[in-house]
C-alpha cells in the first residue's frame, strides 16, 4: 500500500506543477483532473473510500466540467474550429494520458490483489461518516445547504445578461437557470 501511495503522490505533484505552468487553460484543466484523480487514489490508500468516490464524482466530475464549460464559452465563433484542433493535438493530451495510465495501473493492481493490500488501520466506513454527518454535524449540513442555495442565487444573479435590451432577458434567464441547476450537483 505504501508504494501505491508514493506513486500516486508523485503523480499528484507532477500534474499540479504542470497545472500552474501551462499557458493554455484547457491543457491545465486536463492536468488538474489527473491531479484530482491521483488524490482520490491517495484517499483510498488512507482508508477513506467514501471520500475517494466523492473526489472522483464531484471534484473531477462536476466541478471540472463547469470549468471546461466556461473555458469553452470564451471562444465561440469562427476561430473556434482552429482552436479546437489545436487543443486536440497529440502533445496536448499525451502527458495527462500517461499520468492517468499510471493511475489506471494502480487501480488494476489494487483490484487484482484485493483484500490482501487493503489498508489495515484507520479505515472509516461510509456508514460511520453518515452517522456523524446526521448526528453531531446536523447543523453543519443545514448550513451547507444554505450556502449552496445562496451560491445558486448568486450565480444566477451574476451570470444574467444585464443589457440595455429588455426583450431577450426572458430567454437568457431560462438558460442560466438550467446551468445553475447543474452547478448544484
Amino acid at each position: 500500500m505504501n508504494a501505491v501511495f508514493y506513486i500516486a503522490a508523485a503523480v499528484a505533484l507532477i500534474s499540479t506543477i504542470m497545472v500552474i505552468t501551462r499557458l493554455n487553460a484547457i491543457h491545465a484543466l486536463l492536468y488538474l483532473i489527473v491531479s484530482l484523480l491521483a488524490v482520490a487514489v491517495i484517499f483510498f490508500t488512507l482508508g477513506a473510500a467514501f471520500a475517494a468516490a466523492l473526489e472522483v464524482i464531484i471534484y473531477a466530475g462536476a466541478i471540472m466540467v463547469l470549468f471546461v464549460f466556461v473555458v469553452m464559452l470564451f471562444n465561440l465563433g469562427p476561430s473556434a474550429t482552429a482552436q479546437e484542433s489545436q487543443w486536440l493535438s497529440l502533445s496536448a493530451w499525451i502527458g495527462p494520458a500517461i499520468l492517468a495510465l499510471v493511475l489506471v495501473g494502480e487501480l488494476a493492481f489494487i483490484i487484482t490483489r484485493g483484500a490482501a493490500i487493503a489498508p489495515a488501520a484507520g479505515v472509516v466506513e461510509p456508514k460511520q461518516v453518515g452517522v456523524a454527518l446526521y448526528g453531531p454535524y446536523l447543523l453543519g449540513v443545514e448550513l451547507a445547504a444554505l450556502l449552496l442555495l445562496a451560491a445558486m442565487v448568486g450565480a444566477y444573479h451574476l451570470g444574467r445578461e444585464w443589457g440595455d435590451e429588455a426583450t431577450g432577458r426572458r430567454g437568457d434567464g431560462a438558460t442560466e437557470g438550467k446551468r445553475d441547476g447543474e452547478k448544484e450537483e
Binding site: A48, F50, A51, L54, I58, Y59, A62, I63, L66, F67, V124, Q128, V129, V131, A132, L133, Y137, G140, A144, L147, L148, A150, A151, M152, G154, A155, D180, K183, E184, E185
Partner: peptide
C-alpha cells in the same frame, strides 16, 4: 469519521465557490 465530514463540508464550499 470527523475528518471525512470536514472534507464533505470543504467539497460543498468548493462547489459554491466555483459556481
Amino acid at each position: 469519521a470527523d475528518g471525512q465530514v470536514m472534507y464533505l463540508f470543504i467539497l460543498s464550499m468548493a462547489a459554491a465557490e466555483v459556481a
